[in-house]
Design a protein around this nucleic acid. Structure first.
Lengths: 261, 261
DNA sequence: GTATGCATCTCGGGA
DNA sequence: TCCCGAGGTGCATAC
């Protein structure tokens, strides 16, 4: 990695931008206002913010709070028209994407810090995750008794006319059973989805059971399921993927293997 | 705004952390790996990244690309246990949230830049948006002929047993019509939702039409609607909220009033 | 606090 | 490229 501090003097900063714009990452901290005009029109009054221009064309403007940028422009295939100008001692930047007709104007009135970061791509590759919905369903396939006893799983991701059934099963009586799995809390939408699947079989004259499996199922969802003769089973993912005991001090003793073993 | 550069020497940086942690925003750029253990388990190999610790407790770890942080921890009500340690010339930080039992370990092997930002909250307030779904429906209420001629809107956000109907109308024949509006492209889920509303009236023995209004409606969604005797109208939001003509140079001439007038 | 639904959702996978 | 669905969705808002 290489880091180069850029001048906070507006004109000098503008002069140094061209050599850095298409390369890596630019960080600017200062006072700005901004306008985004595209999928939505959004304006921000003058305020203290952090601007990140990434090498893929992502532009993030962050407030002092919040996980999401307060305004942003995504990296997209195609041309990026990035222009800038100094006017009345302000740095005016515009990023325009012809393909989506989205423009992002940012005007800096003060710059407190600016830096250019040359980042080695090779070092940003390895990552692993464990515990998403696919892993959740994996566990249910291994242990269908978590849903109910003597459940036999026939097919996973069974395609029907509209959509895919998470788990297509047969219960202890031999009745075919459609199971929709959500790792998160269930919503009415999830119940609708299950209903649609059941309907598909009903139209063919086949009687099937429908079970919604989720971490948590709110009352209204349960009410909907009941009025449509659908069932539900709550299986908290926390029981299937418990968090590891943390070490008593801050020393990080847990490594990748601990998580994936 | 006040900006203070912090030492990149690991031990000195660690020494200066306590006085800054609970105040404002900390920026650290360097080489790190990390582990998140909570709703999902996620690991990142050593790489060049940018870490932002915000004053509300949000922690963002950004890669060189992408709009979203590669790993993060949201601001949440309740206690944040933030601890750190120097070990073998690495800076190890842990943020643990007892309420959600989520831990975020970050280990910095090199620090290229670190800064502490004292941000004035008062300056980050004013913002306005225009052109979201609510504004979209507003326009449809003003101009129902965009959907079809002689459509009379009876009620907006009409509550039924499960959910709210965007627009409850009566067509030129006096037939009651349920309209579900999406500013974005429609999905099968939206069609399910409309179908549910229609079903509600059918069960009461009332014949109603159902129309899905959206920016764009993919073929599969249209197919679903057709097989269930539902209708659709495509109304691109771009026609209702056109982007402004941009100035020919980079000078920002457009101000708030231009957007909201 | 929980529940509900929109979002400039973002992101990845598949056809 | 478009389509589709999951997400550690984030976030505001209503209850």
């Amino acid at each position: 990695m290489k880091l180069e501090l850029l001048p906070t003097d507006m004109s000098k900063l503008a002069d140094s931008l061209p050599s850095h714009l298409d390369n890596d990452m630019i960080l600017i901290v200062g006072v700005c206002d901004s306008i985004f005009d595209g999928r939505i029109k959004s304006t921000l009054d003058k305020g203290d913010r952090t601007l990140i221009l990434k090498k893929d064309g992502s532009i993030l403007l962050h407030n002092a709070t919040g996980t999401r940028p307060v305004q942003w422009q995504k990296a997209r295939a195609g041309k990026i028209n990035f222009t800038y100008n100094i006017e009345n001692s302000t740095l005016i930047m515009e990023s325009y994407r012809p393909k989506t007709d989205e423009s992002f104007f940012i005007t800096f009135y003060e710059v407190w810090f600016a830096a250019f970061l040359q980042i080695k791509e090779r070092l940003s590759k390895g990552s692993q995750t464990f515990g998403d919905e696919k892993d959740f369903v994996d566990q249910l396939v291994l242990h269908p008794e978590l849903i109910e006893s003597n459940l036999k799983i026939i097919e996973r991701e069974k395609e029907i006319a509209f959509g895919f059934i998470d788990l297509y099963c047969q219960d202890s009586n031999g009745t075919f059973t459609v199971i929709e799995v959500k790792k998160q809390a269930a919503t009415l939408t999830d119940a609708y989805q299950l209903h649609r699947y059941i309907e598909f079989f009903q139209k063919k004259g086949e009687a099937v059971r429908g079970i919604l499996v989720a971490n948590h199922i709110p009352k209204k969802v349960i009410a909907y399921l009941k009025t449509h003769n659908l069932e539900h089973v709550s299986i908290p993912w926390q029981e299937i993927f418990p968090t590891l005991k943390r070490p008593t001090n801050t020393v990080r003793t847990k490594q990748l293997d601990d998580f994936l073993s």
